[in-house]
């Protein structure tokens, strides 16, 4: 099919993000080297870790570093194969083929980031299999097309092992295709630097926010499913930077998102009050 004759509706096309400036990322281990090596060896990568600890930011940073475009897909339980691979649309009286984000990424030699992959339907995850082994290809059945991925194409998936239902476990046949990187909350000093940078607050405020984050993490399993991730700390910092008092900012950005139950909420308020 001639794309010039059938221009795809632009609004629906997958955006290929070319990151022009460096996304700030503070390395916490050897993840930069491992990721770069995996990219070099054309291996897919899996990022594991709790929410808000920098996985998405890391991928953005690596896309910039490797000078490759980035395609991000947030997976959900209604995500179909067609949503990833593409489908025919009717434009006027003509049918037009529209690449899905995965196909677009393969064609462009981009990094394709599937966020929270376990959320996707089981039959959907299967389409990535041929891309993750030595075939490195994407069969587009509807068009009878078999796209071999260019060397720059790279598949990255993420998932949070702490937040899963048994019915949504990732199959070994899927997990064992990936080079895995474990993410965790950064060490206090590093995290404070991140919070100061991202939130635009002074070092002292950042340090206290990180202290508060650490205290909430001790409540995992004892009132909270998970403690505050770096993201929440950054949010609180941003509110503080815009002139809000630390206590109100932390309550709104950290305590409320974390807990509904009264005792835990009150205890979080006490912790906020204690730190500031």
């Amino acid at each position: 099919m001639n794309p010039a004759r059938n221009p795809a509706p632009r609004a629906l096309a997958t955006p290929l993000v070319h990151l022009a400036s460096e996304p700030y990322y503070h390395a916490t281990g050897d993840e930069l080297e491992v990721f770069a090596a995996a990219a070099n060896s054309r291996l897919p990568v899996m990022l594991k870790g709790p929410t808000g600890c920098g996985k998405t930011r890391f991928v953005e940073h690596m896309a910039w570093r490797l000078k490759r475009p980035l395609v991000t897909v947030a997976c959900h339980d209604d995500l179909t194969t067609a949503d990833l691979v593409g489908r025919y649309l009717i434009v006027g009286d003509e049918t037009v083929w529209m690449d899905g984000p995965l196909t677009a990424a393969v064609r462009a030699g981009a990094i394709c980031y599937l966020d929270e992959i376990v959320e996707a339907r089981k039959d959907t995850t299967v389409v990535i299999h041929p891309l993750t082994d030595s075939r490195r290809a994407l069969p587009v059945e509807k068009r009878g097309e078999y796209i071999e991925a260019p060397p720059d194409f790279m598949l990255v998936i993420s998932y949070n092992p702490g937040y899963q239902s048994v019915l949504k476990e990732m199959k070994p046949s899927t997990r064992q295709r990936f080079v895995a990187l474990d993410f965790d909350y950064p060490e206090a000093e590093t995290e404070a630097r991140i919070v100061a940078h991202e939130g635009g607050v002074d070092d002292e405020t950042a340090k206290r926010l990180v202290k508060l984050g650490g205290l909430t993490r001790k409540l995992k399993g004892a009132g909270l499913d998970e403690g505050a991730g770096t993201r929440l700390l950054v949010h609180a910092a941003q509110l503080i930077a815009s002139g809000m008092s630390p206590a109100i900012a932390c309550t709104a950005a950290i305590a409320r998102p974390l807990a509904d139950e009264t005792d835990t909420r009150d205890a979080l308020d006490d912790l906020i009050r204690a730190v500031f």
């Binding site: 001790k218 004892a222 009132g223 005792d263 205890a267």
Partner: peptide
């Protein structure tokens, strides 16, 4: 009690 015990639990 509930509030305090969680508060103390979070401390080092």
């Amino acid at each position: 009690e509930g509030r305090l015990s969680r508060f103390l639990h979070a401390l080092e």
